[in-house]
Design a protein around this nucleic acid. Structure first.
Lengths: 208, 208
DNA sequence: ACAAATTTAGACAGGCTTGTCCAATTCGTC
DNA sequence: GACGAATTGGACAAGCCTGTCTAAATTTGT
């Protein structure tokens, strides 16, 4: 494991103040001196960790957004699949959980560092996702008023049942992710879908 | 300010490891010795802080749930009002933000302490809220499949636009709270509200 | 194989923090 | 005013952590 990866793990587990350079070095399998040779001091190492996580998370998010179903065959199934990919590859994975925890714990102490994340990450994510939803609406698959609002609500809905797990830093099971995404997409489509499906399907949606 | 309140503030700002007893004492306006006289040691003080926050937050949540609009005059306006109260009095206030941050930062280190919060807090909140929504559905104001899912999604929706602010530990403005609640309730009602325009759906609801 | 660069282990100083002890002072109550 | 309880300030030991230094060992490039 690289020094930065080990540092990410320890910073997340122990917090910045509680993180111990000796422990990071041991976890990375190098000597303490090597850590100092590479990164100067603790704060510098922390910045390197956040930049690394931010870069990888953003790359993952945009790679996943590229799989958004622009021409859906089955809108509900395709959106559920997209939501599951988003959760699995960006939000629940190691990088996503670590970055989230560092932001929550140290965000107020490093405003400029996390302001960068904020602009590059959520800002662009929402905007890119809103564009995709606008396109679906334009193509007649959805009835959306404000695509930015719809994008944020989509993410909120498909994560609605995972909040507690995220809050405690845990990793939801594949089944939990799927259930939350399914319930979220169903409600999203109940609100924004065009309802041109059959009455039988409506009945299923209403009861499920 | 009481010792526990000052400790809550410092633990949240600096993290458990970074919190300094001298600073807590100074912020509370007492001597360090007094802190030790009252609470024994740092860990003990931390536990006292979490218990205090948990108790106050839960009380606030259930007081607010008691204001749920069981007989709504204007369903949309009443739900927005409820959502704003929930956010203002339970989630955005000092206690709510502090408790959330402590859970996120130290939850994994004190599983038994936060398991208590988890059962008494979110578990009962969701369940109580689900019962209120079920009642609205029974009275014919909503068309809900699973009240538990609807309750979680309601909370997720009305907070959808506040996520980033929460993540960075900030306090949203009254306008932001109102806008997020309004957008969330509008979508919630688009998904679960009764629709006079859809005969098929009406039929389904009549049987549900 | 040799030389340069990197890594390692360990010691070390300096600073900070926790938790204890104690004498002096203040406070609450009668 | 008096007396017991609580609070205060300060000193103090012990431990931990950061960051530096050095000399030896190891790896790397040629």
């Amino acid at each position: 494991m690289s020094v930065v990866d080990a540092a990410a793990s320890v910073f997340c587990r122990e917090g910045y103040a509680g993180a111990n350079i000796d422990l990071i070095a041991a976890e990375a399998g190098v000597s303490r001196q090597t850590v100092y040779n590479h990164h100067g001091d603790k704060e510098n190492l922390f910045v390197a960790v956040v930049r690394d996580l931010t870069k990888r998370c953003n790359a993952g998010i945009f790679a996943t957004i590229a799989t958004f179903p622009d021409q859906p065959a089955d809108l509900e199934a395709d959106l559920i699949g997209f939501a599951v990919r988003m959760n699995r590859n960006c939000i629940c994975n190691r990088d996503g959980r670590f970055l989230r925890k560092l932001i929550q714990a140290e965000g107020e102490r490093y405003p400029e560092l996390f302001a960068e994340w904020r602009e590059q990450g959520p800002g662009r994510t929402w905007s890119a996702l809103a564009a995709r939803f606008a396109r679906l609406a334009f193509a007649g698959h959805l009835a959306i008023g404000d695509p930015d609002v719809a994008a944020r609500q989509f993410l909120a809905l498909v994560n609605a049942e995972l909040q507690i797990t995220f809050m405690l830093g845990g990793m939801p099971t594949e089944e939990e992710v799927l259930r939350s995404a399914s319930n979220g997409v169903r409600t999203f489509l109940a609100a924004f879908g065009r309802r041109k499906t059959s009455p039988a399907r409506q009945a299923v949606l209403a009861h499920a």
